[in-house]
Amino acid sequence: MTPVQTRTRPPAHRRSGTATITVTVEIPADDPRLARRLTAALGVLAQGGGRVAIEGAQPVPAEPTPEAPAASPALVIDVPGREVTIHGEEVALTRLEFELLAFLARHPGMVHTRSELLQYVWETPDTGLPGRTVDVHVRRLRAKLAEFDALVSTVRGVGYRFTRSRDVEYRTGTGYNEDRGLTI
């Protein structure tokens, strides 16, 4: 593997203070984990406001996992049954708390603004409710999720996101979950 090469171009606008950094990394084909970790790191950079462009990147196939006994997930969001359980114990959520959790978990990793949440969860335009309504419901939801409160993270100045986790199962009415496969 060749060393990492970087090249920095001075800022296009002196006032903005932005710079373009070009990084060239050669990753051996027999090390797919390194490619995934690098892609994840670049994703974090992009979420912080930077732009990331990957030239010539090839999608890396997932590593086959050895057959292990299926462990039951710690947090289950059952949309058809409108039920959330933590370690098999049902969590009592209000209708809006459940809708908020289900909406965020349906799109893990995606940041949703307060306006989007008001539109899709509350089904009302942004101007219809006080400004802190979403924040209050998120706070109450986190309190009820106990040890899983960190799954609903705040993106400061933007909104909220649900973090992907192997401990979470999102059940839909089709009997199939994209992240965990067939659910029964």
Rank of each mutant, 00 (worst) to 15 (best):
M1P: 07
T6F: 11
T6D: 05
T8E: 12
P11K: 08
G17E: 04
T18A: 13
T20N: 04
I21P: 01
R36G: 01
T39H: 03
A41N: 06
G50I: 02
I54T: 05
G56A: 03
Q58I: 01
P59T: 08
P59K: 00
E63R: 00
P69T: 12
P73E: 11
L75P: 01
V76R: 15
V79C: 03
P80A: 10
G81E: 13
T85N: 09
H87L: 13
H87C: 04
G88C: 11
E89D: 11
A92I: 12
A92P: 07
A102K: 10
A102S: 15
F103M: 06
M110I: 12
V111W: 06
E116A: 14
L117D: 06
Q119T: 03
W122Y: 15
L129F: 08
P130A: 09
G131S: 12
G131A: 13
R132G: 05
A143E: 14
A146H: 05
A146F: 01
E147V: 14
E147N: 13
F148C: 05
F148G: 02
L151F: 09
R156P: 08
G157C: 10
G159W: 09
G159C: 11
R161Y: 00
R164K: 11
R166Y: 02
Y170T: 07
G173L: 04
T174G: 08
T174F: 05
G175K: 04
N177M: 01
E178V: 05
R180D: 11
I184D: 13
